[in-house]
């Protein structure tokens, strides 16, 4: 049997939030298959983003292990986790998080400029151009993100997440700011471009999107 792409065992994460009760997640056991499309749901503030950040190695649990593609992420140093993220994880954000001073093409290629481990060479540029073409953004590749619609900006964000071909894609409410028609277009692009063996972990509040996913995880079950 093929090993799981993402595994969490007896993970406990707790942090105190100012003027609020302490926040704690307890995930006894979770395994995601390689290529699985997973929706993460739950009420606001329940810990969906915290869960995603634990998987991505942006947060480290107080106990338990997080393993991605055979690497125990929770045991890595900060530099090790950063290197892991660069190689293994692509991010899509709710507010797009594009840099306003870079062109659309430069935003897509940004991971290559930030990480010495990634080489900004012809194959990367070709891949970025192909992604932009499939996203219908070739005509605006030289423009600044501020001149694009929200749907176009999120498609740029998806291209940026896909360009490094990271096998794990984490999307934090990528359609939260989009209308229904634009949401469909953006998700069509995302699901169409995602490689069959790449895993998608997407936080969403939209129950109408759940039919697109193989599995739904409700984070409220893990709230201690």
């Amino acid at each position: 049997m093929e090993p799981a792409h993402v595994t969490l065992r007896q993970v406990r994460f707790r942090h105190a939030r100012a003027a609020e009760a302490p926040f704690e997640l307890h995930i006894p056991q979770l395994a995601l298959r390689r290529g699985e499309r997973v929706a993460v749901v739950g009420p606001s503030g329940i810990g969906k983003t915290t869960f995603a950040r634990l998987v991505a190695g942006l947060l480290v649990p107080q106990s338990g292990t997080v393993t991605v593609a055979g690497t125990e992420v929770s045991a890595l140093s900060e530099a090790g986790r950063r290197a892991f993220r660069v190689a293994q994880v692509g991010f899509i954000f709710q507010r797009f998080e594009l840099l306003d001073y870079l062109s659309v093409l430069d935003n897509v290629l940004l991971p290559y400029r930030l990480n010495p481990a990634l080489r900004l060479e012809t194959p990367a540029r070709v891949r970025a151009a192909q992604l932009l073409e499939e996203a219908g953004l070739t005509a605006v590749a030289g423009r600044r993100p501020g001149t694009l619609s929200q749907g176009e900006q999120q498609r740029v964000g998806i291209c940026r997440a896909l360009v490094t071909r990271a096998p794990l894609l984490i999307a934090d409410e990528p359609t939260g700011n989009l209308d229904g028609k634009t949401t469909d277009r953006v998700l069509d692009l995302l699901f169409h471009r995602l490689q069959p063996d790449h895993t998608l972990l997407m936080i969403t509040h939209d129950a109408g999107l759940l039919h697109r996913f193989d599995r739904t995880l409700d984070v409220s079950e893990w709230r201690a």
Partner: peptide, 16 residues
């Protein structure tokens, strides 16, 4: 701050 947070999420080091 937001821009630098994004860069960190995308793999930029603190020194970057």
């Amino acid at each position: 701050r937001d821009e630098l947070w994004t860069l960190a999420q995308l793999g930029a080091s603190r020194g970057f």
